[in-house]
Design a protein around this nucleic acid. Structure first.
Lengths: 181, 181
DNA sequence: GACATAAGAGACGCAACGTCTCTTAGAAGC
DNA sequence: GCTTCTAAGAGACGTTGCGTCTCTTATGTC
């Protein structure tokens, strides 16, 4: 019988975890099921991640890359912000609210890092807009800079179901743009 | 041996649940422990609430009344909004983030209602401010009306630990007031 | 070819779930 | 005041999944 090792095995484990996540959701995901799906034993999982939350987080990271990788640059502030929000929404939709809630509930300290990435992205977008002369200054309160992403995240976490196109535009047109011009 | 019944018993059960919640947090709260603390059997709990989430939600409602009961009316828009946010924060602090996350994770549909109460409160505050001539119009996008409460909620749910005084004033001075004047 | 390491498999004890059964207290009806 | 019915109090029960542990054996290293 052939045995996988190292990176190949690890990728198999994370894929199995992800598939299980998609099929059963977070709360119904069991270490046993992940091990079985990966055709291995529980110990192989516990040797790498100390609990469900860490395994799931690793599986998520393995699937979806970092959102900060490239900052949208469409030539207009409005569509840059919309693009970045849309990217957040897509990402979130592929993961689902249950997973996030599960993680937040089970991993008390694990994730602050996951939710603070947006600030530099917005800073870049705003700096470019100021350079283009679209807005008077790029020197905005942090609170304003993070407001759109935070409101979107709030929306996604507290209302199940997909969010409407209108939500994104309203966030930008009713809240963000009035604050920066 | 004396047996409690009806409302008296129910209050005892909810108090026991609340105490257990304060002592152990949500995830460590067990039906067994609540029953033991209330000096009764599990069946008495299951006869009333069909799971942990419902029991905890009932215990919360039993403790803290509705936030919509009276709308602050201090004579100034700024301090009205600050007052209402402060009230949210106090309430939240007495409950703690773990409980909310636990509920959100375990009760898929239970609570949307809990999180939409703030809108009418803000509407009233803004209407009064417009009547006083503080702001040009009370006819604001829903998104603006709910922004302060939503941002505060986002903050409380995603950053553990107590929030600073500064957070509240920044929410009002950097975001809300600029949007309504 | 010998050896160390970790994979694969599953047994184990534990905790809590939610259901069930049983006895008996206390409220309601006659 | 006696009967009757409902639900309280208590705990046994089977089930599930956790996280630990032990054991054999495949595979890479020296």
């Amino acid at each position: 019988m052939e045995r996988r090792r190292g990176a190949e095995l690890e990728a198999g484990l994370l894929d199995a975890a992800w598939d299980e996540l998609m099929e059963s959701g977070y709360s119904a995901l069991t270490m046993e099921a992940v091990a079985a799906r990966a055709k291995t034993g529980k110990q192989v999982l516990y040797r790498r991640w100390k609990n469900r939350a860490e395994l799931v987080l690793a599986a998520m990271r393995h699937r979806t890359g970092s959102i900060t990788d490239d900052v949208p640059d469409t030539g207009s502030l409005r569509s840059d912000v919309l693009a970045v929000l849309q990217r957040m929404a897509d990402r979130f939709e592929s993961i689902g609210p249950d997973v996030i809630h599960g993680l937040l509930a089970e991993a008390p300290d694990l994730d602050p890092e996951v939710f603070t990435r947006m600030s530099p992205v917005m800073a870049t977008i705003v700096r470019r807009a100021a350079a283009r002369g679209e807005i008077p200054t790029a020197d905005l309160p942090a609170r304003v800079l993070t407001a759109p992403a935070n409101l979107l995240r709030h929306e996604m976490l507290l209302t199940r179901g997909p969010l409407s196109e209108e939500t994104l535009t309203s966030l930008v047109d009713d809240v963000f743009l009035p604050l920066v011009t």
